[in-house]
């Protein structure tokens, strides 16, 4: 059984970030904010360190939402909606705060998604690795070395 990390290569920070941004936009357009955990989770697939997974998820979703908000501000009065909303809390004139809070929450969703994704990948890979060791006949060390060379 192949490990997940063998299937999804370590792309490095920048390419992974781009993948999360694209996925973040696409999934958010479905209207379901929980999918940002999934978008961030992809950061965990294409990176190998928890810190990178979190950062790609956090920044990727943050940038994705920033882009959507920019579009909505131009086309759909997002600032006016935010201003209306914050007025409910008695903070009129601070509509930008709603968008900042939204971006922060979205980024955290992405970041935690990345973190969880990385942790899940590692534990699945370890589980599959252990399972392989349990059920596969032990090969002589030399054969293993040979296979690796091939």
């Amino acid at each position: 059984m192949r490990k997940i990390d063998d299937i999804f290569p370590n792309l490095g920070f920048a390419p992974t970030l781009i993948i999360v941004i694209v996925l973040g936009i696409a999934l958010q357009l479905t209207g379901f904010w929980m999918t940002m955990l999934l978008a961030g989770g992809f950061g965990g697939l294409f990176t190998r360190r928890h810190r990178h997974s979190f950062l790609t998820g956090f920044l990727g979703v943050g940038i994705a939402w920033t882009g959507i908000f920019a579009y909505l501000t131009v086309t759909a009065q997002a600032m006016a909606v935010a201003e209306f909303f914050i007025g409910l809390l008695g903070l009129s004139g601070m509509g930008w705060l709603v968008i900042v809070i939204s971006l922060l929450l979205g980024s955290l969703l992405g970041g935690f998604g990345g973190l969880f994704g990385r942790s899940l990948v590692e534990i699945i890979d370890e589980f599959s690795s252990e399972a392989e060791q349990t059920h596969t006949p032990v090969q002589p060390t030399e054969e293993i070395v040979m296979e690796e060379k091939q």
Partner: peptide, 19 residues
Amino acid sequence: GLQIVAPTGGIFDVGVGVH
């Protein structure tokens, strides 16, 4: 809850709806 402040699927869709 605060979920409605997401850029889509929440309060910001209302601005889209006026078109």
